[in-house]
Amino acid sequence: MALLRFVLNIIWLVVAGFWLAVGYAFAGVLCCVLIVTIPFGVASFRMANYALWPFGRDLVRRPGAGTASTVGNVIWIIVAGWWLAIGHIVTAAGLAVTIVGIPMAWASVKMIPVALAPFGNEIVPSDSRRTGWGI
């Protein structure tokens, strides 16, 4: 299973992960330049890391995330989240054209929630007992 995840991550990195990570990094740099939005930049860099290597990791809701996370997510959607979500949708549509690309298209779709709402979520390793593609 670990070998399959590794191979899928390498293929993902070549066909989509690098460019999606660049999009997240661009949003992060833009947010860090505007000093007030540095927390948004940090969240964007975290998501760039996830976009580079998604197989074998999951997005889970962080316990204790409250009103500040909700407010941050609303601001994030307005500023950058919808652009990044559109990038994931377009990427998934392009990848789903081939049979080999279907698992990678699913990984791109799996990233839409974190693209729209990065606050109050965390990226954790997948449970080793999971079956399927490990995404």
Results as ranks from 00 to 15, higher is better:
96 A>H: 03
26 F>H: 09
103 P>C: 06
13 L>F: 14
45 F>V: 03
21 A>N: 02
97 V>K: 09
74 V>W: 09
79 V>M: 06
38 I>C: 11
52 L>Q: 09
66 G>I: 05
54 P>N: 09
50 Y>G: 03
75 I>A: 15
91 T>E: 09
87 G>D: 03
111 M>T: 03
49 N>R: 13
44 S>E: 09
78 I>N: 01
59 L>D: 12
76 W>H: 08
117 A>G: 13
110 K>E: 10
88 H>E: 03
35 I>T: 13
50 Y>T: 01
125 P>D: 14
46 R>E: 05
91 T>K: 05
94 G>D: 04
94 G>R: 10
32 C>Q: 12
47 M>T: 03
92 A>M: 08
95 L>M: 10
83 W>D: 04
106 W>P: 07
11 I>T: 13
52 L>I: 11
86 I>C: 10
10 I>Y: 08
50 Y>M: 06
124 V>P: 03
13 L>T: 11
36 V>F: 11
29 V>H: 10
64 G>H: 07
8 L>K: 07
110 K>I: 04
37 T>A: 06
63 P>M: 04
113 P>L: 11
133 W>D: 11
1 M>N: 10
115 A>W: 00
122 E>A: 07
121 N>P: 00
10 I>M: 07
34 L>A: 14
77 I>G: 08
21 A>R: 08
31 C>W: 00
7 V>D: 01
18 F>A: 01
38 I>F: 13
78 I>M: 04
35 I>C: 12
64 G>L: 00
12 W>M: 06
14 V>P: 09
116 L>T: 05
74 V>G: 12
97 V>T: 08
